[in-house]
């Protein structure tokens, strides 16, 4: 448990919200987001999903809308440029700078180097995909490239996060507070490409929809990815998207959710601990989830943060409806998860 330090002045964390489309960006801003993060409609970002993301024109309009309401827009360019073909990624960085994005969220060392050299005025955040999990790694990016904020990988406990914050100032940290949970260190997982040929690092997709197949049988539904069965559901069981690491597999003679159950990260109950740990920004996952999700989750966390800052008890908010399989976890933030 967190040490019961009660610093007189807690810093109000920024609420960083996902938007896969201009409509979701408006929803997020209207629901009380301090920042919205988005990506271009191509493989330069880690949510390169069909029909999702922003054209250059839409990003320009989105930034104007957010800025007119006091919110910031961060552009995720957080895949790893293809060998021999960095142009698409360089162009994305150039356009983010030109359109006056408030920051670019980058993962690849070479791309960070390009951004730092070419656009010294562009604020840089380190993506979770860079998996900087300790103070030395974070200092490397800060000292070498001037990274201002690091999104911490979802492998750390609250205590470890507090310890990191104490040692990397003035570099800011951002942590995930809600949404789909990677159980592997992000940016260091090739399970998706092993099954399908496409991975988050190279293509910006994990368990791509084009490789997904559902088969209805008298026993229920089977979900497959790249021809591998990821799960089977009986007719009354809630089914999920076959994200590889949330599947049921057989190991040691028994079938189980070996890596993780279909579950969503929800930290509403530990918000006070995360704020005390000195985190600068709280991030909500889910650029692929749509307006309804964005509005509901942003409102919930807006209320939660405001309550903690005002010294009020946490509001009871039920987000069951929009969590995977209706299940929630505080994930790696608590050590027992490991």
């Amino acid at each position: 448990m967190m040490a019961a330090t009660t610093p007189a002045a807690l810093t109000r964390p920024e609420l960083v919200c996902p938007a896969g489309t201009p409509a979701a960006l408006k929803s997020a801003v209207d629901a009380g987001a301090d920042c919205v993060y988005v990506g271009f409609r191509d493989e330069t970002n880690a949510r390169n999903f069909p029909g999702l993301n922003f054209s250059r024109k839409e990003l320009g309009e989105g930034i104007a809308y957010a800025h007119s309401r006091g919110a910031k827009v961060l552009v995720a360019i957080n895949t790893f440029p293809r060998a021999g073909q960095p142009q698409l990624w360089h162009q994305a960085v150039d356009d983010a700078a030109r359109l006056k994005a408030d920051a670019a969220i980058l993962a690849d060392i070479g791309l960070i180097d390009y951004a730092a050299r070419t656009h010294p005025e562009l604020r840089l955040h380190l993506s979770v995909q860079a998996a900087a999990s300790n103070p030395d790694a974070i200092r490397f990016y800060a000292e070498r490239f001037g990274i201002k904020r690091v999104v911490l990988p979802r492998v750390l406990t609250v205590q470890e996060i507090a310890a990191i914050n104490a040692r990397i100032a003035p570099v800011e940290t951002e942590v995930f507070v809600f949404g789909g949970l990677c159980v592997m260190a992000e940016g260091r997982c090739a399970l998706s490409s092993y099954a399908t040929g496409q991975s988050p690092n190279m293509n910006g997709v994990c368990s791509p929809a084009g490789e997904v197949r559902y088969t209805e049988t008298p026993q229920g539904i089977t979900s497959e990815l790249g021809g591998f069965t990821i799960n089977k559901f009986t007719p009354n069981e809630p089914a999920g998207y076959p994200t590889l690491c949330k599947g049921r597999f057989i190991a040691d003679d028994k079938a189980s959710y070996l890596f993780e159950e279909p579950t969503s990260l929800n930290t509403l109950t530990i918000l006070p601990d995360l704020i005390k740990a000195g985190v600068t920004a709280f991030k909500i996952e889910g650029r692929q989830r749509g307006r309804a999700y964005v509005a509901a989750v942003v409102q919930a966390f807006r209320q939660g943060i405001d309550a903690v800052m005002a010294g009020r008890p946490l509001p009871e908010i039920d987000l069951d409806r929009i969590t995977e399989g209706g299940k929630q976890t505080t994930g790696a933030y608590e050590k027992a998860w490991r």
Binding site: F80, G84, P86, D113
Partner: peptide, 11 residues
């Protein structure tokens, strides 16, 4: 994660 020439050059 060494996927491209830029990162290779930095390392």
């Amino acid at each position: 994660n060494i996927y491209n020439e830029g990162t290779l050059a930095t390392l």
